[in-house]
Each structure stands twice: as structure tokens, then as C-alpha cells.
Simulated assay, not measured.
Amino acid sequence: MSYLIFRLYGPMAAWGQAAIGGVRHSELRPTKSAIIGLVAAALGYKRDDSVNMQKLASSLMFAVKTINQGELLRDFHTTQVPSSNKKGPIKTRKDELTGKNHALNTILSIRDYRSDGLWIVALWLTKEPEISLETIQTAFLKPKFSLSLGRKSCPLALPVTPMIIKDKTLKEALDYKFSPLSMFSYFEDRVFKKNNLVTYAWEGERSLLLADGSQLEKVQTISRWDDPIDKLRWQFKKRAEHVLYLED
């Protein structure tokens, strides 16, 4: 099996959960929807490009290794929005706030972030893919749109460093060590890794194979509503995710 692996690190990340009222919680690790959006941004797909977005979602399988889930950072968020205007499209934020007969309203919300989290992501292709891992790798090296960690206010702090790993198991791909001479390797060992416990989460086959062909036990299977159907309408479907906690 071939895998495209890359790393995600930033001072803030937000992996959205189902929104309830004005509270926006964050998952402890990237959601599939967030990763599909990240790949789409690198390729230059816009949010309303439902055809290409759906092709991505149906072509890619996803796994993530959490080295450090980050600390919880909670922001009390205020936003000014005008009353609803159905007379026509609004081109800019300035037009939205300064238009005639637009009464401004204040929306209060709570937004959660993960601070200083570090994740390794692996992607692989379904049986009938409409894109190649090499295409995604090239896009990550020269992304068309700016990449972020769940929200635009959460930029990357390190390059994603995409690499294609061939003829390895999924666990071997997620455990791949980047260059020991890199600054990332230094920080991974001394800063990000606060304990020896790491989390593996993946979809597809429930077993997580080792290099010798043996299987790891004590795998937990959960349901997550993060498989995108329509990103523009925020519609998602349920998928099964397998989770394993190990000492590294």
C-alpha cells in the first residue's frame, strides 16, 4: 500500500464538532472534513465546487496519529453582523456593514482551539480514485490557497512536508520519522511530546497491522459525523473510525 503522509502543527488549530448554539467546540484531532478541505485548498478548489470536493471525499481514505493533542484555548468571540438583506448579493465586508438601512447586531459565541498540537496524517486511495497521491503531494508543495488548521485564523507554523511511503503498513507510515537533522525533529522530541502516549485513528479495516503481520488489539470503534457530503451546506454523513492508544 502507498500512503501520502504529512504533518500538521500550528500555535492554534480548530477541528470542528457539531455546533450547538453559540458554542464552537474542537475535536482533539483533525476531522476528515478538515483534511478534505485542506487538500482542496492546496489544489485550488473553492468551497462551492461541489463536484471536485465530492471527488476528493470519495477518492481518499484518512488516518491520523496524535503526538500531542494540544492545550485547550477558549476564546470569547464577538462578531457584528447586519440584519438580513434579500435585495441582492453583497460584494465586500465593508458593504455589508455600511449599507443603508442595515441595523448592526452583535453575535456572541465561544470558540475552542487546540494550542501547540501536533498531528501526522496519512492519506491513501480508495478502489476507484479520481486523483493521485502524487498530485496532492505536488499541490501541498505549492498550494493554490493558504493552508490553515480548521479555521482561517489558524495558520500552519511548519511546512507540511508531504512524503509518499510505499510498500508499508499504515502504522509504519504514521510512525515514519522525518529527518533527524531537522528543526522539527528537535522540537518533536523536546517540546511537543509531553508523554509517551500517542493516539492512532483510522478508517477502513479495523485491524492495525505491524511490520511482521501481527495485529494490535484493544481497538475501539466509534462513529463520527465528519464525512463531507456538501461543504457549502455543511452536510456530513456518519463514518466508522477505529482508535488505538499506545505508548511510543
Score class of each variant (00 low, 15 high):
residue 99 G to E: 14
residue 211 A to V: 05
residue 120 I to F: 04
residue 81 V to L: 01
residue 172 E to T: 03
residue 160 V to D: 05
residue 193 K to N: 07
residue 116 D to T: 10
residue 148 S to I: 10
residue 96 E to S: 15
residue 108 L to A: 08
residue 101 N to F: 00
residue 145 F to D: 14
residue 100 K to W: 11
residue 84 S to C: 13
residue 227 D to E: 10
residue 47 R to E: 07
residue 92 T to R: 13
residue 119 W to A: 02
residue 51 V to M: 15
residue 45 Y to Q: 11
residue 49 D to K: 03
residue 49 D to H: 07
residue 16 G to F: 00
residue 154 C to W: 12
residue 54 Q to A: 11
residue 146 S to C: 14
residue 10 G to T: 04
residue 123 L to M: 05
residue 215 Q to R: 13
residue 227 D to F: 11
residue 142 K to M: 08
residue 15 W to M: 05
residue 159 P to R: 11
residue 60 L to D: 12
residue 103 A to K: 11
residue 120 I to S: 06
residue 201 A to G: 02
residue 162 P to H: 06
residue 203 E to L: 06
residue 180 P to Y: 13
residue 233 R to T: 12
residue 177 K to Q: 08
residue 47 R to M: 08
residue 146 S to R: 14
residue 195 N to M: 02
residue 207 S to P: 07
residue 123 L to P: 04
residue 90 I to D: 04
residue 185 S to L: 06
residue 10 G to F: 04
residue 76 F to T: 03
residue 202 W to S: 03
residue 87 K to A: 09
residue 83 S to V: 01
residue 220 Q to L: 14
residue 173 A to H: 08
residue 130 E to F: 12
residue 183 M to D: 15
residue 88 G to A: 07
residue 198 V to W: 07
residue 10 G to D: 02
residue 67 I to V: 08
residue 75 D to H: 09
residue 138 T to F: 06
residue 77 H to G: 07
residue 19 A to C: 10
residue 30 P to T: 00
